Simulated assay, not measured.
Amino acid sequence: MLIAKVILAAGQSSRFNGCKLTADLGAGQTMIEHGVNILQALDSSPVFVVTGAWHKEVKNILVNNKNIKLIENKQWDKGLGDSIATATKAILENQQPDGILFILADQVELTTKHLSELVTNFKRHPSRWCANYGERLGVPVIFPKVDLSRLSDLTTDKGAQHLLRCTDEEVNTINLKCASLDIDTQAQLNDFLNKTR
């Protein structure tokens, strides 16, 4: 079963006052490298990285990483939905996956173990699988083949949230409160670093 793996990393990170994707998380690992590493540890298939506002910076950081495919979304300012659509179209040009796994580049507490649980459940029962933060549902998420044409047509800046809330397809979840942490500001990054030291 082929599950394409995507990191969404196209946003401007305006509240961070700079490129958070190249921020050091410790042990010489940047934020974008953390996302790449946890996805690469799942299996040997390539990791797709959707870039945008900070394309050159991300490209420079990942220049020596193997088995990565950069997808530049030149319309990144249209929002998350456009990045999801851009990634889905690019993947479907080259392969026909059974599903697509999406994570956000700034979900710094995610581990390969978390993603592996999601993948294992999807393989047992191919349908929508996502994280349950306790108060809402969100990424990481795996969308099955039946959703891929819908993902290709997304335009909203809300991403694919409506697909997790609607009832026309089954939505399954794993409890993953740590996935609710994404880094938007320098203060949040400092809090995370202080907590992990």
Results as ranks from 00 to 15, higher is better:
Pro140Arg: 02
Ile103Pro: 02
Lys59Phe: 03
Phe16His: 08
Thr167Trp: 00
Val36Leu: 12
Ser45Asp: 12
Gln29Lys: 14
Val146Ile: 12
Lys145Glu: 11
Trp54Tyr: 11
Thr173Lys: 00
Ala4Asn: 03
Gly11Tyr: 00
Tyr133Asn: 02
Asn37Thr: 12
Leu110Met: 09
Asn172Val: 09
Glu109Asp: 10
Lys59Gln: 13
Arg136Tyr: 12
Ala9His: 04
Cys19Val: 12
Lys56Glu: 10
Thr120Ile: 11
Thr22Glu: 10
Ser127Met: 13
Val139Arg: 06
Leu118Gly: 01
Ala27His: 09
Glu93Arg: 05
Glu57Ser: 14
Ala4Ile: 00
Leu42Trp: 06
Trp54Ser: 01
Leu8Ser: 06
Glu117Tyr: 08
Asn132Cys: 04
Ile100Leu: 09
Gln40Trp: 03
Leu189His: 07
Asn172Arg: 09
Asp82Trp: 02
Ser149Thr: 14
Ser45Arg: 08
Ala10Pro: 01
Phe16Leu: 08
Gly159Ala: 11
Lys113Gly: 04
Leu148Lys: 04
Leu115Thr: 07
Ile91Met: 04
Ala85Ser: 13
Ser127Glu: 14
Met31Phe: 08
His55Gly: 12
Gly26Lys: 03
Arg150Cys: 08
Cys19Glu: 07
Val6Tyr: 02
Ser152Lys: 10
Arg124Val: 02
Leu193Cys: 13
Glu135Ser: 13
Gly52Ile: 07
Thr30Cys: 08
Leu176Asn: 00
Val50Asp: 05
Phe102Glu: 03
Ser152Pro: 07
Leu176His: 04
Tyr133Leu: 04
Asn67Thr: 11
Thr120Tyr: 13
Phe102Ile: 05
Gln95Ala: 14
Ile61Pro: 01
Ala131Phe: 01
Ala160Cys: 13
Phe143Gln: 01
Arg128Phe: 01
Ile7Lys: 02
Leu148Phe: 07
